[in-house]
Nucleic acid binder design. Sequence first.
DNA 1: CGCCTTCTGGACCCCCTGGTCCATTCGGGC
DNA 2: GCCCGAATGGACCAGGGGGTCCAGAAGGCG
Lengths: 205, 205
Amino acid sequence: MCDPGSVQSRTPKLTAKGRATRERIVAGAAAEFRARGVVATTLDDICRATATSKSQLFHYFPDGREQLLHAVAQHEADRVLLDQEPFLSDLTSWAAWDAWRDAVVARYREQGTSCPLGVLTTSLTRSTPASQEVTARLLEQWQRKITDGIVAMREQGAIAADVEPEQTGAALLAGIQGGVSILMQTGRLTHLEAALDVGIAALRG
Amino acid sequence: MCDPGSVQSRTPKLTAKGRATRERIVAGAAAEFRARGVVATTLDDICRATATSKSQLFHYFPDGREQLLHAVAQHEADRVLLDQEPFLSDLTSWAAWDAWRDAVVARYREQGTSCPLGVLTTSLTRSTPASQEVTARLLEQWQRKITDGIVAMREQGAIAADVEPEQTGAALLAGIQGGVSILMQTGRLTHLEAALDVGIAALRG
DNA sequence: CGCCTTCTGGACCCCCTGGTCCATTCGGGC
DNA sequence: GCCCGAATGGACCAGGGGGTCCAGAAGGCG
C-alpha cells in the first residue's frame, strides 16, 4: 500500500538503522504537522522533534521538503483507513455498520482537531501535486469499501434494490469528509455524527 | 454582514479613493489566493496583481499579512452565501430546493477547483484564529438557512414530522462541504452532486 | 582486523519574504 | 490658491527558512 520509492527519487540503500531513522522522521513530521500545521512547521522543527540533523533529513529525502511532504502524506493516508479497521472492510450486517459508525466517531472524538485526514485535505494536498494524488487515491479506496458494503447488504436484501451503491456511497463519503472538515473548523463533532447517522438511516430506508 | 473595522485594528480614515483601493486589494488578493493558493502567494504577488505598492498594502492593513488574510476571509465568506441567493433564503417549495441544488452545482462546476469556500476551509482558516472564526460563522449562517427551509417545508406537511431539522440540516451541510472538499482534491463534481441529491431525496422521504 | 559504505553532526550560505521608512504626489475643504 | 491629511512609490532592512558541505563516527562484511 505504501509503495515506497516509486514516486520519490531513488534514495541510497538503507540499512536497518537507516530505515528506522527514516521512519522516525516521517512519523515525527506527521505528528508535528498535525499539531502545528504544515505551513507553520519548519524543517528545523522536525529535526528538533525527531532528534535528527538536517543532513540526515536530506540524506533520506534528497529532494527536500517536498519529498518529505509526500512521504508523510502517504503515511497519513494509510493511517486513515487503518483506523477504521476491521469494521470498514466488513460492512455486511447492520451491526457492522453501527460498529463502524461508532469507531469513526470515537476516533475523531479522541483526536479532535489534530487528525491525519484533516492535515491531508487542508494543507498537504495543496503543497504538491504528488500529495494530491495520494489523497485522491485514499478517497477512491475509501469509497470503494463503503460501496462494497452497500452492495453486500443489497444482495442480502437488507437494502432496497433501488439504492444506487455508487451514488449513495459517494454521498456518505462526502458527508464524512465534510463532517471532519467542519470538526476541524469549529471543534464540534455534531456534523460528522449527523452525516453518518442520516446517511446510514437513508440506507436502512 | 461585513462588519469592517471591528476586529481589525483601526485603519486611518478612508476617502472614496482609499476605499476603492482597499477593496481592489482585497478582491485581488482573494483572486490570487484562489488561483495559486494562500501559502504560495506572497505580498509582492498581491502588489503586482493589484497594481499597488507595499506601502499601500501596509497603509490599509497596518497589521500586515494577517489582517489582510482576515479581510479576504470575510470577503470570501460573504461571497459563498451570496452565490446561492436568492434560492438559499427561500427554500419553501420543492421547486426552490431543486433550483438551489442546481445553482450550487452550476456555481461549483464553473469555478472548479478555484473556489472561495475551498480557500477558506483549506488554507485561510488555518492561518489565523480570526479567520477560523469567520469560517465558523459562515457555516453557522449557512446551516441556519438550510434548517429554516426544512422547518418551512415541515410546517407545510411536505416533509415528515419525524425529520429533525437540525440534524438533517447538519448532515446536508456536511455533505456539501465534503463534496466541495473532494472537488478540490480530485476535480470531480460527482460527490457534491451525490450529496445534494441523496440529501434532498432523504428529505422528500 | 580492515575497508568501504552508510549514517550523523553541525557549521555555513543565500535568497525570499514580511515589514519599515521617508519622500513625494494627490485631493478636498476653505 | 493654500494647506494638511490621505495616498502612493520604491528603496531598504533583518530574519528565517530551505538547502549544501565536509568531516568524522558507526557498522556490516570479507
